[in-house]
Nucleic acid binder design. Structure first.
Lengths: 216, 216
DNA sequence: AGAATAGTGTCTCTCAGACATTATTTG
DNA sequence: CAAATAATGTCTGAGAGACACTATTCT
């Protein structure tokens, strides 16, 4: 009942990225054992919540305008130094061609290495993952993890990694194409096999997807 | 950029209820025109966020343990008296047999009377409504607006009011029954027509529904 | 008997999932 | 021409939506 306790409003970001055939998250490594932590920042009253998150990320990596979504606000999370935190948690997606940077205070951790995470962080991570998987199904948010143009095979692989299950090639293509959110570009050759057509998502589909966001 | 501005964390509740064949929300009526406001409370560091919301509601009405769900956290909402608010918004559902109370600072307003609400409140309300409708589809949350036992017709009517569209009787019953979340009880007679079977939801289905909550 | 509401079953069409072969490029 | 990856179409089963009549109670 001590109303004298101060309540510190902060934001937290769960930033996902595809690296080395695995879904990874950005964390601050910690001195001892597995006390990793997600990037966190005090909320500055000067700008919007999303703005705060973008600012927080800009300090850690050289990418701007990242896909963001509010996840949940936790009020009874960590009690540290006798102070309570009110954490507004976001999740964010970083295209994999922008994930190669080095900043000595953050590293990538595969989400499947579950014992890298303390209990509380794991809970948040699981929830973020559920949301990501869920959105993937109805909103095709997978693009946000890829460069501007990509092949259907790459996109399918992205889905498979996130969902952690194999998908049927023909059914996948049918679904994606008839969702009418991507459009073809030109060709590209890799060293191996038949060249794949490259797609990008339709610029007007972005707005459409935003509008489809039931959970902004 | 003035970090000196203080940021006041608060909670807000959008409480829905079924009254007079309409979906209504609880608001503080305001002196002039249409400046209604949703119930709001400062966050006390002593208890959880949900606890804070329940406390806030207990001050306004004689009902306990109400269905709650976190909606969204707004950081750039109202700027009042030079202070910014950080509003964690919840939505809540009140069974219609508990909605008859009088408290001089709150009233019920039908959600369809859209011009009763100022712009910002309307935005929040719309979002809450979308979420409610959405959850109704996959989680059968409609029960939370009815007394403990109810007929299938009453349940269907509830759905129709919330979704604001007529539903087919046979399809509705099929869907609800095969979802396996309600069980029959005994009969009751109304003055009119054939008596309807009364149902309640399966107590073990409550846990199931909670588990199905993708968005806690 | 008439008014009022409860309760019940079938058909059709669309969509999701399983599934194997051909096409194009490189070395 | 062998290896590697891209691209393509059909069938089947399940579930959603449209639809009309019979059953039980009350006055």
């Amino acid at each position: 009942m001590s109303t004298t306790e101060s309540l510190i409003p902060e934001i937290k970001v769960i930033l996902f990225c595809l690296k080395e055939e695995a879904l990874q998250v950005l964390v601050h490594p910690s001195d001892s054992q597995n006390r990793v932590d997600f990037p966190t920042g005090l909320i500055e009253a000067g700008s919007s919540l999303e703005g705060n998150v973008q600012n927080c990320l800009r300090k850690l990596l050289p990418a701007d305008e990242i896909y963001l979504e509010q996840l949940f606000t936790y009020g009874d999370g960590l009690v540290e130094q006798g102070q309570r935190h009110l954490s507004v948690v976001y999740f964010a997606l970083l295209p994999n061609n922008k994930s190669d940077f080095t900043h000595h205070h953050v590293i990538w951790k595969p989400v499947l290495e579950r014992n890298s995470f303390p209990e509380y962080e794991l809970e948040i991570l699981d929830y973020a993952l559920r949301r990501l998987r869920y959105k993937l199904e109805y909103t095709a948010v997978g693009f946000e993890l890829l460069p501007e143009t990509f092949s259907l095979s790459e996109l399918q692989r992205t889905y498979e990694i996130i969902l952690d299950e194999p998908l049927d090639k023909r059914n996948f293509r049918r679904r994606i194409l008839q969702a009418n959110i991507i459009e073809p570009t030109t060709y590209r050759k890799t060293g191996e096999g038949r060249p794949a057509a490259l797609y990008r998502y339709r610029s007007d589909a972005v707005a459409e997807i935003k509008a489809r966001r039931l959970f902004p």
